[in-house]
Design a protein around this nucleic acid. Structure first.
Lengths: 242, 242
DNA sequence: GAACTCTTGTAAACACCGTTCACTGAAACC
DNA sequence: GGTTTCAGTGAACGGTGTTTACAAGAGTTC
């Protein structure tokens, strides 16, 4: 079973500790505190030893981003699994609320992953839960049919590309969608929903609303309701008839 | 006229050069390059001399934020002044487009000011142009009357506070608004517009759309149209009948 | 104009940072 | 047992923010 040699086991363990220490430093003392020397100090080794595991400080930060994305995805999936209603609308609400809660609880991680002018993000981890959920939402046929010609033609090319991304994301979970169900109008509304979800969460995390918000949660819920309404979602939010 | 003594003039000049050097470093080489020693090197002085002007590196960064906000506000006001249509709808579009253009042209500045988990921003500079424009938009009576009871009651307290902020922002420009014109429904929609504007711009600057967008500009314009429609704006976008 | 204070700069030092390099010693392999 | 592989060390280099003691010019007072 344990094909791993002693040395390999130790190496894996050390790498785990490095990631853990880096994460703790980010959470507790901010991005600038994630320092090779601080990590090494935490492990009781010297800084150059870390170069046996990562090419550079930057590479380590990239790994940290991936870890954060993976953890966030796990949390979002958990909140999805915890929803027993079977109603897509409830699932969408659950995941969006979970995203907001995660971002507020992990502002440093959120800033690093979602608000850095860096490389376009190893999105493999990040998007999958959103994408598959968005795909399922659309496939559920509970979304109103938005005519394609509502969407400006210049956007078609990009939206078709996103359509493919969505279909790939869903097909990973064994579901296939007919092309005509996933029309451009719906896809456009999914993008607009992401704009609003991200916008609200980022503004709240960074405190950039134009006034002091004492009750952000109901404001978020209200935005969520409006979002689902605008997307043409036809499920009754509170009834259990499904 | 020049009450300033020679020493005061020199000091002011040096401070100007410090800010200028800091700004150039941020733009050309990123946040982490804005270093006391690098700034000093640029001015041909030594790093400790900067402590005669700023208490710390962090204080200098704060000043930098303020400068950025002021410059951005200048640019937004310029684009507002450049609009000769006299139509509020065109002005809103002009300012929103200007905000997007500025953010894309100054990603480092945008990240520093709008996407840092820091203190709540010396918003004096930042918001004023948005706020006064939002106030005027509402006061123009071109926005549909949204009934107050559309807005969940838990939000009323916060929105009333924002109402006051808006009225203050507009009154600085010598305009006063009757209380009933600036109703909570409208105010709520202004907040939602900021969510969408900020969301789109930040996603574009940080490259966090869930797919590669080759044509972001028409997507932004489309979002802007939708935003103005949702806010109940009743001015025809292209006619000049006013 | 001399004596004085205030201000703006300096150089040296401290502790920290990322990174490189020559090295050691133990694990793994043949 | 001899050899190779490799995680770790210590010293070093140039960079950072910050503090300290000190110099020298600007402005002020007599």
């Amino acid at each position: 079973m344990t094909e791993a040699t002693r040395r390999e086991r130790l190496r894996a363990e050390t790498e785990r500790e490095i990631r853990q220490a880096a994460r703790a430093l980010l959470v507790e003392r901010g991005r600038d505190a994630v320092t090779l020397r601080a990590i090494a100090r935490e492990l009781g080794i010297t800084a150059p030893a870390l170069y046996r595991y990562y090419d550079s400080h930057e590479a380590l930060l990239r790994q940290l981003c991936d870890d954060i994305c993976a953890d966030m995805a796990t949390e979002l999936y958990a909140s999805l699994a915890a929803d027993t209603s079977g109603q897509v609308g409830c699932q969408v609400r659950a995941v969006c609320r979970s995203f907001r809660r995660w971002a507020l609880a992990h502002p440093q991680e959120f800033a690093l992953v979602f608000a850095s002018p860096r490389d376009p993000l190893g999105a493999d981890q990040f998007g999958s839960v959103f994408l598959s959920l968005a795909g399922r939402l659309i496939a559920s046929n509970l979304v109103a049919n938005h005519a394609d010609d509502e969407v400006p033609e210049v956007l078609h090319e990009d939206l078709v590309r996103f359509q493919q991304v969505l279909m790939d994301a869903v097909s990973v979970h064994g579901v296939t969608i007919e092309n005509d169900v996933l029309n451009l109008g719906k896809i456009y509304h999914v993008v607009q929903s992401w704009v609003r979800l991200y916008g609200h969460v980022a503004l709240e995390v960074f405190g950039r609303f134009p006034f002091a918000v004492s009750n952000p949660e109901p404001m978020f819920d209200s935005m969520l309701d409006q979002m689902l309404t605008d997307i043409g979602f036809q499920e009754t939010p509170d009834s259990s008839g499904g």
